[in-house]
């Protein structure tokens, strides 16, 4: 076929990436500026009511230390650690507890969800245990887990797993079940085997849904971390914040809270970044 057989509007037909790109970039820049302004306003408000040593604080520093005081507390924690262990140690142990549970759910929960999406039998078998235990607040099970699995790392990891597992497996199952039947039929009539259809059609088509579950798990996982470090431990960032609260060391509490916030935020950004690379085509059917 020669070029004259193409639509006359072919060139105009191709989405004009340049124009769209410029408009998108401008919108992105504006929303970034707005976010930054909102963040600065919060910081300013915090500084204003706490004085930061510049004027008389409106709120007693015992309840809310100034941003500067929090920064100083962070500096001190970095230098001398907390309760005999370095801040890095507390951070890494928290990250490990979260990471183990998170990794387990990605490598076991997601595949089980995929299996449930693919096979009615697997669904019939695995749906009841997941669905019936889903409404239980998993933190309420922590005392039980401690009795069963001891006061070590295992019970802490398991309580986080208990919260993340259904999130990831059910979102993976839903993702598989909502794959367009058209695309599966297309693959079938191209002669693809069941395994090929799973690997090259169902799995990639499910990725956006799987990522939704993974990103929800980041938020829930960090929350669960606080719960898991409430009892039977003497390290971890959440434990540091909780134990500092007992001595009304509000500045240390805030350092702990901010570190966890930063951790959650960073992990979420990381997930988004991977998602954007892996499923750039999502929602563009």
């Amino acid at each position: 076929m020669s070029a004259r057989n193409l639509d006359p509007g072919l060139a105009a037909d191709v989405p004009d990436t340049d124009d769209v790109g410029v408009a998108n970039r401008r919108a992105a820049r504006r929303s970034r500026a707005l976010s930054l302004a909102s963040f600065a306003a919060m910081l300013l408000f915090w500084t204003a009511i706490t004085g930061s040593g510049l004027w008389k604080p409106v709120v007693d520093p015992v309840f809310l230390p100034s941003p500067l005081a929090v920064l100083q507390a962070l500096q001190k924690l970095l230098n001398t650690g907390y309760q005999g262990k370095s801040l890095l140690h507390h951070f890494l142990i928290s990250l490990m507890r979260f990471g183990l549970a998170f990794g387990f759910c990605i490598f076991v929960g997601v595949p089980i969800g995929l299996l449930m999406g693919m096979s009615a039998n697997a669904r019939a078998l695995l749906d009841p245990p997941i669905e019936t235990t889903r409404p239980i607040p998993k933190l309420a099970l922590l005392p039980l887990f401690i009795i069963w699995f001891g006061i070590g790392e295992l019970s802490k990891t398991i309580v986080i797993i208990a919260a993340l597992f259904p999130l990831m497996s059910i979102s993976a199952m839903q993702a598989v079940r909502s794959v367009s039947i058209r695309k599966i039929q297309a693959a079938e009539s191209l002669g693809a085997s069941r395994w090929t259809i799973f690997r090259r059609v169902v799995l990639p088509a499910s990725l956006p849904g799987i990522f939704t579950g993974i990103r929800m798990s980041v938020g829930v996982g960090v929350t669960m971390l606080v719960g898991a470090e409430m009892v039977a431990t003497s390290d971890g960032i959440a434990w540091m914040a909780l134990s500092a609260a007992d001595f009304i060391q509000t500045d240390i509490v805030l350092v702990g809270v901010l570190i966890m916030a930063a951790m959650g935020y960073t992990l979420d950004r990381l997930c988004r970044l991977i998602e954007a690379r892996l499923v750039h085509w999502s929602g563009k059917d």
Binding site: K183, E188, S189, P204, A205, W281, D285
Partner: peptide, 19 residues
């Protein structure tokens, strides 16, 4: 059953978006 000897072209939405 579906088979490769019968090629199908759909109205829309049947391309593999990720490829």
């Amino acid at each position: 059953r579906p088979g490769a000897e019968r090629g199908v072209v759909f109205q829309q939405g049947a391309l593999f978006t990720w490829m």
